[in-house]
Amino acid sequence: MRIARWTQANEHFEGFVIDDRVVPFPDGLTVADALARGLAETSALHARVAEAKGVPLGEVTLLAPVAPASVRDFVAFEEHVEGVSAGVEGKSDVAPEWYEAPTFYFTNPHTIHAPGQELRPPVTEKLDFELELAAVIGAAPGIGESNLTAAEAASAIFGYTIMNDWSARDLQAREMKVRLGPAKGKDFGTVLGPWIVTADEFESYLDDEGFLRLRAEVHVNGELIGEDLVSNMGWPFPELVAYASHNSRVVPGDVLGSGTVGNGGCLGELWGRKQSLIPPPLREGDVVTMSVEGIGEISNRVGAAVPAPELPPARPRPRHRHRHR
């Protein structure tokens, strides 16, 4: 099944993509409702409308397929870490801690972009993309509780979508020197789309260890920049979900990104390997197109940068310990 959100004639709809048409959910239900009900009930909804006429896909404007409850973004590809670390350290260095657990950060669920939506980045000299696959969480036994096993987490993966984690590398680099972040180098835009493909559609792509053998590609202005197999990640998705739940909670509507694929999944990796800004950072007018086997593609144009109001630097303070009378 393919699950989507879209607009037509200024009206908002949510439902299924069936062949080359879109069909709203019955009873006015939403994607959030479908995720809260889980795969089995959503399959029953699909059966109710499978023969409906719907509207041709080409006549609607797709939105991001989910309004996430939260967005966790992992760094699960060793090859990506090798390349990016070379740009920061001057040589490739995958820290031993990377192998111990699938590290992630939280990004902004309020700046989710749709496929086709123009990106208005911050002022940056090093605008980059990041090609990722993302899991979308749905209802399952144990979901919402802490410390899921990998098996429990696997049943909570409702489906997958493509994710572009836009990045301002110069802003990110400053933040990371403070040993916190990334923050403003990342939180201005994340693309999800074009739809959610339910997890049952990917069973034939799973290898013996549970990794998804899906081909992922990214093009800039029609030129192939990166290509990889999603199965090259260090942990399969159920283990990412399980780790996210450690002493915490994962709930329906959460989105978990794989992190950037290797072999050119972002410009930052290539810059590190080449020790130069080749290919060049993204500029206004560039079009970034990403595709993942079994899902489809998303394409977004870079628009003009949006300057933000300036803030003063930190003020030196006297560090008094008591109020003056």
Rank of each mutant, 00 (worst) to 15 (best):
R5S: 13
W6Q: 07
T7C: 05
A9W: 08
E11S: 12
E11K: 15
H12P: 00
H12I: 10
F13R: 05
F13W: 11
G15N: 04
G15E: 01
F16W: 04
R21P: 01
R21A: 04
V22N: 06
V23A: 00
P26V: 11
L29H: 14
A32P: 01
A32D: 12
A36W: 06
L39K: 05
E41L: 14
T42V: 10
A44C: 08
H46K: 10
V49N: 00
E51T: 14
G54P: 01
L63K: 06
R72V: 09
F74L: 04
A76V: 12
A76S: 15
E79P: 00
E82R: 06
E82C: 00
G87N: 03
G87R: 04
D93G: 02
A95H: 14
F104V: 05
N108I: 08
P109K: 09
H110W: 10
H113P: 00
A114V: 01
E118V: 15
E118P: 10
R120T: 15
E125W: 06
A135G: 07
V136F: 05
I143C: 07
S146L: 07
N147K: 06
E152V: 09
S155E: 13
G159W: 00
Y160I: 10
Y160F: 15
T161R: 00
M163S: 02
W166Q: 04
S167N: 11
Q172I: 11
M176R: 11
R179I: 15
L180N: 07
G185Y: 09
D187W: 06
T190Q: 00
I196R: 00
I196A: 02
T198F: 11
E203V: 15
L206V: 13
G210C: 04
L214Q: 05
L214V: 10
H219A: 09
G222R: 10
V230F: 08
N232F: 08
M233I: 11
G234A: 11
G234S: 12
L240W: 03
A242L: 06
H246L: 13
S248F: 09
S258W: 05
V261R: 00
G262K: 01
N263T: 09
G264M: 06
G265P: 03
C266R: 01
L267T: 10
G272L: 02
S276A: 13
S276V: 05
P279Q: 04
P279I: 15
P280I: 09
P280F: 09
L282I: 14
R283W: 07
G285F: 11
V287A: 12
V288C: 00
S291W: 03
V292C: 05
E293A: 01
I298F: 07
I298E: 03
V302D: 02
A304P: 10
V306F: 08
P309A: 05
L311N: 08
P312R: 11
P313L: 01
R315K: 12
R315S: 08
P316F: 08
P316Y: 04
P316R: 07
R317K: 07
R319E: 06
R321C: 04
H322N: 06
